[in-house]
Design a protein around this nucleic acid. Structure first.
Lengths: 229, 229
DNA sequence: TCAAAAGTGTTAATTCTACACCCATGT
DNA sequence: ACATGGGTGTAGAATTAACACTTTTGA
């Protein structure tokens, strides 16, 4: 049993951000067959001497110009035999989150990259190229559930943010509305979740709000979904 | 950019069960270099026309003789460039859970397969072959956290089980002790979690206990960790 | 009759939810 | 002065945690 059939290994990235109050994903328009003209998730081949995470970082940088400040984690791997009609590929999908003010596009490959609302991408027919619709749906589900029990929502915010901004992240991703007062209490009273920077801002209007940075807490227990309304 | 370096793709399986009140993993002793004589997770190459999940199922069947009744889910993918000194491999790791009474071993490859306590495997030096120690640790963490918010603990039990048996699964995997009375209330009152079969058993000693099957519930909210002591 | 595990009841402490209400700013 | 979001207080409902107590079996 020393057969080891050759596979091509790629990484694909579902990168989310919040723009105009909606959850958006970076997609690239395919210029070649198969799926020519359709939207696809950014991605590419893993190099022969490259770790998977490193490959995902590189692709993300190539497509967006982003070098830091984003969250990147492995989502899952997709390897149906016919997922790419050209050859036998396995793709390791990644979930990435970035703050909103990201300059849309900058990279080399990214000539046709655009931010698109997630809901539209998932509902459209025909959908994304390859199995990218499935990947995007899985990524969305992962993002939603990780917001519940990790401090990951801050990855959608600039380095310093207000509790109100953080709340709007949850509301956007979950598609719910939360009680601002209970959310404020919960967020500010959970030890290790947020670190006050001392600064304030009025960029959201109204009374000046305290600015915070992400704390060191890794897991929220109880989950943030509770006690928030 | 039509380079696509060839990779070998494998699946490796961290299969957990509970034996003698302890959490155990199925490991195989390596008969060849590299890592000759060391324990490794069971696994093998993905076939050229085979889906990843299918490959994992096949390997599991080959190593254990188990055909059904186990839980199997993708864990994550490991692809460090030097993880196998012989060639460039990427392995898609799976987490599997099986009931305790599994006949130890039966398959073809599985000549040297054994159930070993997880704690010992993780603590031993030298550890498992390749990056399997890491995979095992990640699998354990996944199993622990999935017990919190899914009805997955039942995968460690026979088709019909008592609430006490289910509680001992949680206690074993989490390494904690739970209040039997609160656990009973929480488990039996959570809608959709358990379905009474009508039968009873005294196999655990004491007063006869109701038998249950897994319900249809997919996600526990609140998590079972809460309200249980 | 006793030990062992199942199963029910009860209570105090905590947390959750839903609001009323005040605060500090820009317009 | 007023609209807008920030932030605190509080009270009833629900949940959690701790433990007393009864039930039903096998030995």
């Amino acid at each position: 049993m020393a057969e080891h059939p050759p596979f091509a290994v790629t990484v694909d990235i579902a990168l989310f951000t919040i723009r105009d109050g909606g959850l958006c994903t970076l997609v690239v328009r395919r210029g070649e067959a198969p799926y020519r003209g359709r939207w696809a998730l950014p991605g590419g081949f893993v190099r022969i001497d490259e770790d998977l995470d490193r490959a995902a970082e590189r692709e993300l940088r190539e497509e967006t110009g982003l070098a830091r400040g984003f969250h990147l984690e492995q989502l899952r791997t997709y390897g149906a035999p016919k997922r790419d009609p050209r050859m036998r590929t396995v793709t390791v999908a990644y979930l990435a989150l970035a703050p909103g003010l990201t300059s849309p596009v900058a990279g080399t490959d990214a000539a046709d990259a655009e931010w698109r609302p997630v809901a539209g991408l998932l509902a459209a027919t025909p959908g994304l190229a390859f199995d990218h619709g499935r990947i995007l749906a899985d990524a969305l589900e992962r993002a939603r559930s990780k917001l519940e029990y990790t401090p990951l929502a801050a990855a959608f915010c600039p380095p310093e943010f207000t509790i109100g901004e953080l709340r709007r992240v949850y509301e956007t991703v979950w598609g719910t509305t939360l009680d601002p007062r209970n959310f404020h209490r919960k967020a500010s009273k959970t030890p290790g979740f947020l670190v006050p920077t001392g600064g304030t801002t009025t960029r959201d209007g109204g009374r000046p709000a305290q600015l915070y940075r992400r704390g060191t807490l890794e897991v929220l227990n109880p989950p943030l979904a509770r006690g928030v309304a």
